[in-house]
Every structure is written in structure tokens, then in C-alpha cells.
Design a protein around this nucleic acid. Structure first.
Length: 299
DNA sequence: ATGGCAATCTTAGATTGA
């Protein structure tokens, strides 16, 4: 089965493109970020008509995370109280985060076929001197501590964190000349250290299959045409998840501009593209620790 | 070159994104 993540930059503007992608690439479960809508505004019917169930989390026209899945989703978790919030004042529907500021719709958890999956939209940070940057680092640290706790309690858990991490972990992940180490977000040492902290428990399940490739290209300045992108969307898996991954790809073609059909509105692409991994469900929950079992060699 | 592109709501200029 195929599991994917995609920052769609508005699900209402992109629903037809997303459904087309799901069917064309035979995707079973898709984690979405930047849905940019409240739950009742989500275009659920178009996904259900295509055979997908929908779970989504959003407070207003910013942020927003969701899952669409061909398989049943259980244990739906809307956000994590340990994560900090951001902004001025909570809406009536919006609980406070760990710091008392409004919790944002950036984390959604579901369980599918025994896999624990999270759709995550990491704050972008805006600028190294902006309070949003400090929020980003605190948010990542709080999430990492949650993950550590989950895996200490259940080391074999097939867990995957899918989403827009807004960090380019390696120098080769940053191809946008406007982003410079020491001056820009996404490439700073604290952000890269915050990302690396997850790799004590999880591994990037796509990198082994796609050593180089971007997942985002800025709309402005012809950056896609110049291939000045960045790799900031990742699927990080626990051992119990990673050991079931049999392939992966980045659907970079989804960043292309498409011709509008005659009389139709043009379908503009998201500035992010989908990241996909292939899972062999029968391998889920295995771990290197299983290799401690006695084995007979060379007979 | 502090622009440029896209989506949203406070509809026409501000805000957010990365």
C-alpha cells in the first residue's frame, strides 16, 4: 500500500488535482497540510465519491491538517496539548497550547492498519529574529519529546511522521539561493539540530530511494523552472514502520503548470509536491531487534 | 532588486507562506 504526504496550499483550491493524483498514483493514505479551512469547509464529498474517507483539523483559513484514506482511520487525535501555540487570542473553538497562546491546527494523528500516522505542519519561522522562529524551535522540541515517550512505551510501534517540516536538513536539500546559512530560516543550525533530534528515534524512509530531490519550489521568481527548490517535506518512520517500506518517490511532476481544459478554470499547482512511500503491510511491526533471534548461518 | 506569486478574508489591501 502507498502512503503519502502533501502540503496542498488550500484544499478548496486543489481538491480536483488531489483526487486526480490519488487515483492516478494509487495512493491509499494521504496526509495533507495547509488545508486552509475549517472542518465544515473541507470538500469531503469529492473525496468520498472517489472512495476515500476524510479526517480533518482546522480552525480558520491558515494552517490546517488532514488525512484522506481508503482504509478505516481510528484513534483520531486532534493536536497535542504539549505543543505551544501562537497568536493573539483563542477563537471559541480553539484551545490554548502549552504556552497559553492559541493552539494551531498543525498536528493530526490517526491509526490505519496498526500504523500510527501523524500529519504535521511545522511552523515556518518567518525570520531568524521573529518570535515565530522561537515558536518553531519550541514546537519541534515538544513534538520530539512526545515521540520519544511514545516509542519508549512501545518500541515496536509502526509510527510515521508525515509532513511539511520547514527544515532543509542537508546542504544539498537547499537549492534556493535566497536562503543562506546564518541569515535564513530552514537552514539554521538550531533548526537542523531540532530535526536531527527526531533521527534518534526515526529515519527518513524516502531518502534511501531518492538521495537528491526537492519537494518545494517558491512560486515567485521562476524558481521551479530554474530548479531552485528545497527538500522540506519528509516521512520519518520508526523501525517498526521503516522495516516495511519497500520503495518511495517524490512526485515532482505535480509542480508543473497545467493547461486549463476549454471553458474550465486553470488548475494551479501547489508550491509543494507529494512525497510517497510504498509499504508491505505484512512486514509492519518488525524490528532489527528481531534479529537477535538465533539464526543458523552458512549451512 | 525587500520584488516576485498564490490564496484567503477584513473583498482591494493586508496577511501569510518559506
Amino acid at each position: 500500500m502507498r502512503i503519502a504526504t502533501w502540503n496542498v496550499a488550500s484544499i478548496r483550491a486543489r481538491a480536483a488535482l488531489v483526487v486526480d493524483f490519488l487515483l492516478r498514483e494509487d495512493i491509499d493514505v494521504l496526509a495533507l497540510q495547509e488545508t486552509k479551512c475549517r472542518p465544515e469547509q473541507f470538500p469531503t464529498a469529492i473525496f468520498e465519491a472517489a472512495g476515500y474517507q476524510v479526517v480533518n483539523h482546522g480552525f480558520h483559513a491558515f494552517n490546517g491538517v488532514a488525512f484522506v484514506s481508503r482504509h478505516d482511520m481510528t484513534d483520531v487525535t486532534f493536536g497535542l496539548p504539549s505543543l505551544p501555540g501562537f497568536g493573539e487570542q483563542c477563537l471559541p473553538t480553539q484551545p490554548p497550547g502549552a504556552n497559553g497562546l492559541p493552539q494551531e491546527a498543525r498536528a493530526l494523528g490517526v491509526t490505519v492498519n496498526g500504523m500510527r500516522l501523524w500529519s504535521l505542519y511545522v511552523p515556518n519561522g518567518r525570520d531568524l529574529a521573529h518570535e515565530h522562529y522561537a515558536y518553531k524551535l519550541r514546537w519541534l522540541q515538544a513534538l520530539q519529546q512526545e515521540v520519544a515517550g511514545w516509542l519508549e512505551a512501545e518500541p515496536q510501534l509502526p509510527l510515521a511522521l508525515l509532513g511539511d517540516w520547514n527544515v532543509a536538513p542537508l546542504p544539498s536539500d537547499m537549492g534556493d539561493p535566497d536562503f543562506v546559512e546564518g541569515r535564513s530560516t530552514h537552514v539554521s543550525r538550531p533548526e537542523r539540530q531540532a530535526f536531527a533530534a527526531f533521527e534518534s528515534y526515526l529515519s527518513d524512509v524516502v531518502r534511501p530511494y531518492v538521495p537528491h530531490g526537492y519537494t518545494f519550489w517558491e512560486y515567485r521568481g521562476g524558481k521551479y523552472q530554474a530548479d531552485q527548490g528545497m527538500r522540506i517535506d519528509f516521512i520519518l518512520g520508526s523501525e517498526g514502520f521503516s522495516s516495511a517500506v519497500t520503495g518511495a518517490f517524490i512526485a515532482a511532476d505535480e509542480r508543473r503548470e497545467r493547461q486549463a481544459a476549454p471553458g474550465q478554470k486553470a488548475l494551479k499547482p501547489s508550491d509543494h509536491v507529494p512525497v510517497v512511500c510504498e509499504i508491505a503491510p505484512e512486514l509492519l511491526g518488525q524490528s532489527w531487534e528481531d534479529e537477535d533471534d538465533p539464526m543458523i548461518w552458512g549451512l
